[in-house]
């Protein structure tokens, strides 16, 4: 019979083990992606960063996909940030409690729609609409991808910014109101500046989501491995890292698979760095108002 005390310590150890599993998983992801990516890195070296992708000439430059990922994400943020901030201000500062109780879950539902459904709708409805309106070559375009990703990034931006603004102590807002400021002046000059690192962290997470989004982009970006011409042309087709992997994995073999794993490492690294930055910013907000814990 183990004593109660020893049992308690064993329990502690068990939970530590379970918690440490996340660290193990992260390391495994990196290690196993790297093992699969290594042959490509070994063969092509910096050629992987080039702009030419041509299977028959054995050129595998990932630059167009990297550029595409960033381009699409920036466009998506241009749609999502203004709308998302407005909606977050409404939810946290203006909406009556009852409206908030309904809208917040609704926005969470928006986040719950599977990305393949977004992609399907985006391609069939939005793609066709844009095609008819702008007379492009086909239904796929950066513009469609930006709009769809913008809508997909909205919930995360709204909900994280809402949390950040809700975390600003009420006393602070009351103090501003008591000095004769209107509620809007208080929001603009007290709440938003106080919550700015949380809001930034929301925007970064939204960007990470947009860069990492796969299925929706894959169906509407066109998956053509080239840069848009000219580089800011939202009506052109292109590719992103995610779409490249998703489309090519099923159809390729040999060294191309290794190249795709290299793309996966790039994606993982970019998004991991963004998560860490966002996390640091968020901790800063919490510490500002709750003191160090």
């Amino acid at each position: 019979m183990v004593s109660r005390r020893v049992k308690d310590k064993l329990v502690h150890l068990t939970f530590f083990g379970i918690a440490a599993l996340s660290v193990v998983i992260i390391s495994f992801i990196f290690i196993f992606l790297f093992i699969r990516a290594y042959p490509a890195i070994d063969t092509f070296g910096t050629g992987l960063l080039g702009s030419e992708w041509n299977v028959s000439r054995n050129k595998f430059g990932l630059l167009p996909a990297m550029y595409g990922s960033v381009f699409v994400a920036v466009g998506a943020l241009a749609v999502a940030v203004p709308l998302g901030l407005g909606a977050a201000i409404y939810l946290s500062e203006i909406a009556p409690e009852r409206v908030r109780m309904i809208l917040k879950p609704l926005i969470e539902l928006l986040a719950g729609i599977p990305s393949i459904v977004y992609g399907f709708i985006g391609a069939i409805l939005l793609g066709r609409y844009l095609y008819d309106t702008f007379g492009m070559r086909g239904v796929n375009s950066f513009l469609a991808a930006m709009l769809v990703l913008g809508i997909m990034a909205l919930p995360i931006i709204v909900s994280m910014s809402d949390d950040a603004m809700k975390a600003v102590p009420k006393d602070l807002k009351d103090a501003s109101l008591a000095l004769g400021a209107t509620r809007w002046q208080t929001i603009r000059k007290v709440t938003i500046p106080a919550a700015i690192s949380g809001i930034t962290s929301a925007v970064i997470m939204g960007m990470g989501r947009a860069i990492g989004e796969t299925m929706a982009v894959m169906l509407i970006i066109g998956s053509v491995m080239k840069m848009p011409v000219p580089f800011f042309n939202v009506f052109d087709t292109g590719n992103t890292l995610t779409a490249l992997i998703a489309v090519q994995m099923g159809e390729s073999h040999g060294i191309i698979i290794n190249v795709l794993f290299t793309a996966g490492i790039m994606l993982f690294t970019i998004v991991a760095v963004m998560s860490v930055i966002s996390d640091i910013l968020q901790t800063r907000t919490t510490e500002k108002f709750e003191g160090k814990r």
């Binding site: 004593s3 005390r5 020893v6 310590k9 064993l10 502690h12 150890l13």
Partner: peptide, 10 residues
């Protein structure tokens, strides 16, 4: 750490 945690007390 594991050993230390499991040590029975004197």
């Amino acid at each position: 750490k594991v050993l230390e945690l499991l040590k029975e007390e004197k």
